[in-house]
Design a protein around this nucleic acid. Structure first.
Lengths: 151, 151
DNA sequence: GCGCTCCTGACCAAAAAGGTCAGGAAAGTC
DNA sequence: GACTTTCCTGACCTTTTTGGTCAGGAGCGC
């Protein structure tokens, strides 16, 4: 249940692209802005490109930009592009697992876990992230003082 | 963002203990009931014991049982015992991370992610799991047909 | 043609995941 | 007290993942 460096990097780079006023942004500038090793970032951007989230052009004046408007790209899109499906259990999607005995209802719990992750990740767009105007459900989750303490 | 085999095993074994009518249950019986490799399960039960979730006795008539009533042990307790903190980002708790530039608000998003996981994992007890009577918030997440389809 | 920037695969070390092996230590039974 | 049962623990193993580096090729613009 952890967020990998790769996913974190990918979202941060996407946020920078979402905020870009004009023209392609060089990988190096993204790496500097977010303190990400350039060569790592290049691999990530390549995956984002293969997933259809960003576009790129080489050469002078080249760089990366979002393939779609920032309002239409969610954090879930970005995370899935680099990490694969969200909330798999033992590398299988929760809807495909059958539990026995007294754990029979565990499937519903993992489904609920995935659904709750989705309510956050699929509802926050890159535009929301850049502006800081998160959707109200997400805002209210983050607003609870409890949410900020470790357990 | 995936659930490891270990966490899945731990919750399933805990569910079996929660359902036990009386006396200590042997590791072997738990392993059989949930189809878990015995030696793997023994390591997991040891961790659960160190976390104060189960107790154990050796010898004939020995076995494992819950240290507290099943109504007072949440799935979050069990998962944390074997996987460590929920929803860490790059191995650090989200409240300790500072983001720069256009990713500044990403911290709030990860906080919200953790909070949403907690609303599920900290509210479902082992007793709920065994009976199938999940808390209403969790039930309604799992009841959405959408929640059952992959993306 | 030349410099710039993306593109790609190979490679690497360290850690985690998932599991097995082997032996020791307590609790009960005869 | 010997013996059996069951938990306890560390060592070990293989495979995959993670996080990162290196080196060279391919397209774009001037």
């Amino acid at each position: 249940m952890r967020v990998s460096a790769k996913a974190d990097y990918a979202v941060r780079a996407a946020a920078e692209l979402a905020a870009a006023e004009e023209g392609p942004i060089k990988g190096e500038r993204l790496a500097d802005a977010q303190d990400i090793p350039l060569q790592v970032l290049e691999h990530i951007l390549l995956e984002l490109k293969h997933a259809g989230i960003v576009r790129a052009r080489r050469g002078a004046k080249g760089g990366y930009w979002l393939a779609r408007p920032a309002e239409e790209v969610t954090i879930a899109d970005v995370v899935r592009a680099v990490e694969g499906p969200i909330a798999h259990v033992q590398s299988a999607p929760p809807e495909s697992i059958e539990y026995r005995g007294n754990a029979a209802h565990l499937q519903e719990v993992w489904i609920a876990v995935r659904a709750s992750l989705r309510t956050v990740l699929e509802h926050v767009t890159l535009a929301d992230l850049v502006s800081g105007q998160l959707p109200s459900e997400v805002e209210s989750l983050a607003a609870q003082p409890d949410a900020w303490v470790a357990r």
